[in-house]
Each structure stands twice: as structure tokens, then as C-alpha cells.
Design a binder for these strands. Structure first.
Length: 416
RNA sequence: GUGGCUGUAGCUCAGGGGUAGAGCCCCGGUUUGUGGUUCCGGUUGUCGCGGGUUCAAAUCCCGUCAGCCACCCCA
């Protein structure tokens, strides 16, 4: 017996229902981004491995789908978009008026273990503002992410934006005598505090000359912690979005390249998973493209958000409705007389030319079966084409009413 | 890399030494131009794989592989 094939670990098949669900999420990403004046861009799926080394160091290579191409180039399937964006923005930075508001929806690859909400292949929405210093740009991204969640059907009972500012911690650390070179270590300790045993955190902080109490006290200072936070919060409040926002200085984000405000979207009640995250990264474009350009951005992956949608009532209902709509047709042509199959196809083309979604049976079928098939197709109308053609009948499948029409008045009668 | 759980029909799973099961899905029929529910019928299995114990293993034992979940990591 021939060996049967399965997807590689961490890769997915998208059957029509999953594909429709994916496209539903994409469509909302795109619609909300457009609403904020963002324009879509795209980069290559394959990049030189060095692009990622430059940004993240040699260890990153362990997490890449990388290989040598036939031209002996070291290449990698992209694990993220930011380095590509930095390269693109730097290369043609004079071609665009600032600030740039760019978004992208694309597929990414990471060679890591497959688990819930994480695969070796996934889609990610990236949204960035480039060439803007003001933290109102950061606030704009937060507002956009709130709207994303609301558009997906989530309410303020179901998610929060947790907002923080790395600089608040940098200032705190510096003010408490931590040397510049120890700041990254300090940030890492803060980042992991929530998951680390208290005594271990205490020990690590003491090694830097800090006390757990002092850090805890600062953690509670909220919007007082930095000017940036205060102005972002004020701005979001003016937008009427306060109920979605919560200052949480415990959010630092693991990445070394963030340089200012950072935020994450969390679900409430489903284990508080982060469904998206981002922040300001003012040095990265210089690192990749040798151009000074401030930037901030965030990303949302498709796997966690889709899981969360399916587990949450309102959003799940919206998604299911969209999936059902995507596979429905408007009309099913019932071929009551097999001799009129050609005419039936003609009727289908007429309706299709008017933008209707129409199907008909390819092989002769009993009329009862055809109505059953019409029902199952999700069609709202059945058009019966039989021996009396060009007279035909339009049957409303919901209320079961039927009207006699003719080929030349079909389009007018169809929506009546 | 570490740990836990699960592998039986396309899917969800039951069965725990004695002829391989249910529901769902799918296909066909329910007699000749009008429907979803109903009714009847049908297809599909090396019971993950390999070894052991036994008269007999889907079932018990050992190993192995795969999947899922959690940890680590997380751009």
C-alpha cells in the first residue's frame, strides 16, 4: 500500500471552512487598518539569513527555516516582518512623506515546537508608524488595536490593552544606580517577574543593588511612571477608550530592541493570553538600514486570535456567520427537464453576469433531490427551468412562495 | 531539551482477555416537476507500530513512533 501523506509538523491545511475563517480575520485586519489611513505593503518570504542575525543575534538561527540556495546564499524563510520593513523603509526613505502608516498581512515561519496557538507557519498582521517621534503615534496604534478587537466582536469584558513604558524602568534603574550595561538584565528580570518565584526575583534584584519592595512600589505607580504613559493615556481617554486600557508596568516585552512605550493585548478569562503586542523601536531602522527613523508598531498572529474568537460567544457568532455567508450561493437552478440543461446554464450565466452567486446540477437529478441540494447550498432562491421555458419559476426557499417569471424579466423579478 | 495525556471507521468516541461497535458525516433509495426533519439501505478498520505473556490480545506487559498539552523560548 502506498504511503499516505500528512502535513509537516506545525503546518496546516486550510479546508474551505478554515480558509473562510482565515479570510474573515484578514478582512477585519485590513478594514480597520484602512480606517486609520494605513496602506498595505508586502516583502519577500525568503530573506538573507544575515538580516535576522543582524537584528537578533546568532541564536535566532536555531529558530529559523534556513538553508543554502543553489547560488550558495544563506537564506531563511521569514520569521517576522520588522527587519524587512526596516530595510524597505530605509532603502526608499526619501520617497515617502512622513509619517508612514504601513500594514501588512503575511505568512511567517519559525522552526519550533508545535503547540496550541503556535505553529511552524502562521499569518501575522503587522502595523507600523515610521518617521514619527510623538507618542501620539503609539496611542494611535493602541486605538487601532482596540478597534480591531471590537470589530472582531470582543467587548471590554473580554480583553484589555496592557500599557507600559520601558523608559520608565530604564529611568528607575539608572536613578537607582544600575550601570547602563546592566539595564538589559534588569529589564529581563522585570519581564519575568510574574512567572518567577519571589525569592529568586529578590535575589536577582539584590545582585543589582535593588530591593523587591522598591521595584514593587514603582510597579504600582501606574501612569505617574512616565510622561509618555501619561500623555498616551490622556489621548486614549479623549478618544473614549479608557475602559479598554490598563497600565501594567510588568509588561516589558522580551525583545531588546524596544525603546519606549510597549503594549500587549490580553484576553480576560481565558488564561490571560497575549494575543498581540508591540511598542516603540526607535533604533532598529538605523541598525538595519543606517537611517535614523523613529518607529513604533505592533503585530497580531492568526492562531491565538482565532482560538480566542472561537472560544468567545459574540466573536464566534460573527465568525460563523461570515463562514456560512462565504460558502452560500444566491440561487440554485433546478433543471426540471433534462432537455433544458443548456437553457438552465444560460439562466445561470445571466444571473452571474448580474453578480449573483449561482450553481446548478451537472448531472440529471430528480427534482426533489435538486430542491434538497438547493436547500443545502444555502441559496435563498431556486429557479426552476423546465419544459415551459422561457417561462420559469422563482421559488423563495425561506417562505416557500413561488412566482412565475420569464427569462426576460428574471433579473427584475429575482429580488422582488 | 523536560514532563504529562492520548492513539479503535473520514470525524467524535465506547468497548478493558473469547466473531470489531455507536453516533455523526458521506453515498444510494423512499417510483415518474418541488425541500430541510423522518424512514430504509450502503461504503470505510493491519484497533498507531514492533515484540512478549496466553489455547486466545483491541484488551495485560515491555519497547517504539505519532499527536496533543504544559514547561523552556517567544521576534
Amino acid at each position: 500500500m502506498a504511503k499516505s501523506f500528512k502535513t509537516l509538523p506545525g503546518f496546516r491545511d486550510f479546508y474551505p471552512a478554515e480558509c473562510a475563517a482565515r479570510d474573515y480575520v484578514f478582512e477585519i485586519w485590513r478594514r480597520v487598518a484602512n480606517r486609520y489611513g494605513f496602506v498595505e505593503y508586502e516583502g519577500p518570504v525568503l530573506e538573507p539569513t544575515d538580516l535576522y542575525r543582524r537584528k537578533s543575534g546568532e541564536e535566532i538561527v536555531n529558530q529559523l527555516f534556513n538553508f543554502e540556495d543553489k547560488g550558495e546564499r544563506e537564506v531563511a524563510m521569514r520569521p517576522e516582518l520588522t527587519p524587512t520593513l526596516a530595510r524597505m523603509a530605509a532603502a526608499r526613505q526619501r520617497d515617502f512623506r512622513k509619517p508612514l502608516r504601513w500594514f501588512s498581512i503575511g505568512q511567517f515561519f519559525r522552526y519550533e515546537r508545535h503547540q496550541k496557538g503556535r505553529g511552524r507557519e502562521f499569518y501575522q498582521f503587522n502595523c507600523d508608524i515610521l518617521g514619527e517621534d510623538s507618542v501620539l503615534a503609539d496611542a494611535e496604534l493602541v486605538a487601532l488595536s482596540v478597534d480591531l478587537m471590537r470589530e472582531l466582536g470582543f467587548t471590554s469584558n473580554e480583553f484589555r490593552i496592557r500599557l507600559s513604558d520601558r523608559n520608565a524602568w530604564v529611568d528607575f534603574g539608572t536613578g537607582n544606580g544600575i550601570a547602563d550595561e546592566d539595564i538589559p538584565i534588569f529589564l529581563q528580570i522585570i519581564d519575568k517577574m510574574e512567572r518567577t518565584p519571589e525569592d529568586k526575583t529578590d535575589e536577582q534584584l539584590q545582585a543589582l543593588g535593588l530591593s523587591l519592595e522598591a521595584v514593587r512600589a514603582f510597579m504600582e505607580s501606574g501612569s505617574e511612571a512616565s510622561e509618555s504613559l501619561a500623555s498616551i493615556l490622556a489621548n486614549l481617554e479623549a478618544r473614549g477608550l479608557s475602559e479598554y486600557i490598563e497600565v501594567d508596568l510588568g509588561i516589558v516585552r522580551g525583545l531588546a530592541y524596544y525603546t519606549g512605550p510597549v503594549f500587549e493585548i490580553f484576553d480576560i478569562g481565558k488564561g490571560m493570553r497575549a494575543v498581540a503586542g508591540g511598542g516603540r523601536y526607535d533604533q532598529l531602522i538605523k541598525l538595519i538600514g543606517n537611517i535614523d527613523m523613529p518607529a513604533c508598531g505592533f503585530a497580531m498572529g492568526d492562531m491565538v486570535i482565532t482560538d480566542l474568537i472561537r472560544e468567545t460567544g459574540g466573536p464566534a457568532g460573527k465568525l460563523e456567520a461570515a463562514v456560512a455567508e462565504s460558502s452560500a450561493v444566491d440561487a440554485y437552478i433546478v433543471v426540471a427537464d433534462p432537455d433544458k440543461a443548456g437553457e438552465a446554464a444560460g439562466v445561470a450565466q445571466l444571473l452571474r453576469a448580474a453578480g449573483k452567486r449561482v450553481i446548478f446540477p451537472f448531472s440529471p437529478m430528480k427534482v426533489g433531490k435538486q430542491f434538497q441540494a438547493a436547500e443545502q447550498s444555502g441559496a435563498t432562491r431556486a429557479i426552476v427551468v423546465g419544459s415551459e421555458f422561457p417561462e420559469l419559476s422563482i421559488k423563495n426557499l425561506q417562505d416557500r412562495s413561488e412566482m412565475i417569471s420569464r427569462l426576460d424579466s428574471l433579473l427584475a423579478d429575482f429580488d422582488a
